[in-house]
Amino acid sequence: MDWSFFVGHVNYWLFVVLMMTGLYVVVAKGNLVKKIVGLNMFQTAVFMLYISMGKVHGGTAPIFPTDMKIDPATVYTNPLPHVLILTAIVVGIATTALGLALVVRIREEYGTIEEDEILEIEQDMASEENRIHGQAMGGRA
């Protein structure tokens, strides 16, 4: 692993670090809003990784001069990842809003947005139902 390999790949690794920080928040934190923030961070890190693959050394932003007199020597950065990520960001905010709406509904139903407490309430409800139905079915259920 020589120096040029390191310089050429280190930013990919930094993106992976950011991604994993987001994933850690999603997995380790019990709060639903925080999980969504973590998911957003993960998403943004993926976008950055994707865009960085389109970068060309010495390239410029993929916009021609307004008079369309194009200098053949100009190198343009790959515009395709930009298109895909640009739409993905807007779709991302729409789906984030959907996730937040679900959090709001969960809070209204359960009175909490902590994962542990929701699971506890679910467990209580299940055992309560089991008790009622169990009696109705002669204690067999």
């Binding site: 807007v90 905010i93 729409a94 809003a97 937040l100 709406a101 709001v104 809070r107 209204e108």
Partner: peptide, 19 residues
């Protein structure tokens, strides 16, 4: 579409009464 959807989402969240 994006204007409409963003406003729809914002209105939906803010017109909810906080508990």
């Amino acid at each position: 579409t994006v204007t409409g959807v963003m406003l729809t989402i914002f209105y939906a969240f803010t017109s909810r009464v906080p508990s």
